[in-house]
Design a protein around this nucleic acid. Structure first.
Lengths: 218, 218
DNA sequence: CAGCGATTCAATCGGTTGTTTCAATCATTT
DNA sequence: AAATGATTGAAACAACCGATTGAATCGCTG
């Protein structure tokens, strides 16, 4: 069991608190999550948060950092030695698809759901942890994506490359940020692994097609 | 003055409350917005909410409905008599671009910002108003988009069409839902009209290219 | 076993929330 | 002007929040 359940009675109080806080913060956000619910889920007293972390905010920051570290360690991006599509079209295309699929797996993959939801909460609420998250965790991964896209968009403005990269992320994140909307229009009731896999495939092929057309355009 | 400021001292208490509630709810969401802040901005007593609307949630629903009605009245979608791209390629392409651009203008256009932010808050928090919003306001517009896309994807599965429509919306909504992330990677500090116009153009042309490639694919 | 720091516990502290009360005030009609 | 219903106002309500207290308990060392 690499990802102990929040209800796991093992481990010390500090770990149980972070496990419980991860799911509660992911479900309800920093503000609406209550220390009483977290402690109840962790099987700890309400005073334990103040004792072990100092405050609710510090527990949030510790939980967020640990979750992001676990998540990005579990979903490493293929290291890039960008292949020129003019020289090795098939290889470059495979590399592009691998990077996009890797990011897609990180966002919509079978990883513990609360990892992504916790990160999304931070980005949505734009709380005090956002600058840290952007520079320390998201920045490097976005840089890899941007680098691969740039190879497939020779001569294009840097802003154009960034917009393509943002489009890739946006299409994937939408299913996590607005599951109710996506499920309603898909006619489904649950974001099954099949639906998520289909979404990732859709983004992978759409991205490839857009880049091929954009490269041929003036 | 088609959009009276929330601080506008004119109008009856009910209207002033909805004006104030619109900005406060858009800024902080249903849960974190307090009736005291809304009433202070409206220049009304806290009891006025209960008297005129019954509860905070009913005020929220009334404010949301009014904002959505205003917003979608101000941004009507081109009524569709779908043109077959096999018969009239140029016309069908223009129609597709008009619909996507219309949706883009509705999301990233120069409309009162709190309209979009209020709607986004509702979708993000997935509160009790979500079903109403989906069926009454978003559903019809999404149906128009889906209809136009379906014409450009003959023989494709309905789910494929829906995923393309979701991709269009996702790319546009991202700039509103995660402005901090988008601005950080764009190297900007504010979502200027130029940046928003460039984003809409990007989605319009990307959508056209994706559909052209998808139609040619098996 | 005695001692002691680390940890946990129930109880409580201010403070804020949405809601409610009821008297005062306003607007309209008789 | 008097009366009546609609509206507003200050104050308080119960419920909940994060934080804190101080005593009780645990785990280890001497």
């Amino acid at each position: 069991m690499t990802h102990p359940l929040p209800q796991d009675p093992h481990g010390d109080t500090s770990s149980r608190l972070m496990d419980a806080a991860a799911t509660v913060f992911a479900d309800r956000g920093l503000r609406e999550a209550t220390v009483r619910d977290i402690c109840a889920l962790a099987g700890a007293n309400v005073a334990a948060i103040h004792y072990h972390f100092g405050s609710k905010e510090e527990l949030y920051l510790a939980t967020l950092r640990r979750a992001l570290r676990q998540h990005f360690d579990a979903h490493p991006l293929p290291s890039l030695a960008p292949l020129d599509p003019e020289v090795d079209p098939a290889g470059a295309r495979a590399q592009l698809e691998a990077v996009v699929r890797g990011i897609g797996q990180g966002i919509l993959g079978p990883a513990p759901e609360w990892h992504t939801r916790l990160l999304l909460r931070c980005l949505l609420e734009a709380d005090f942890a956002l600058p840290t998250v952007l520079e320390e965790f998201l920045g490097p991964r976005f840089g890899v994506l941007r680098g691969v896209l740039a190879v497939h968009l020779p001569g294009k403005d840097a802003q154009v490359v960034v917009r393509h990269a943002l489009s890739v992320v946006a299409q994937l994140v939408f299913y996590r940020a607005f599951p109710g909307v996506a499920l309603h229009f898909l006619g489904a009731t649950e974001l099954t692994p099949e639906l998520r896999a289909a979404a990732v495939d859709h983004v992978v092929t759409s991205t490839r097609r857009v880049l091929e057309a954009a490269r041929r355009a003036p």
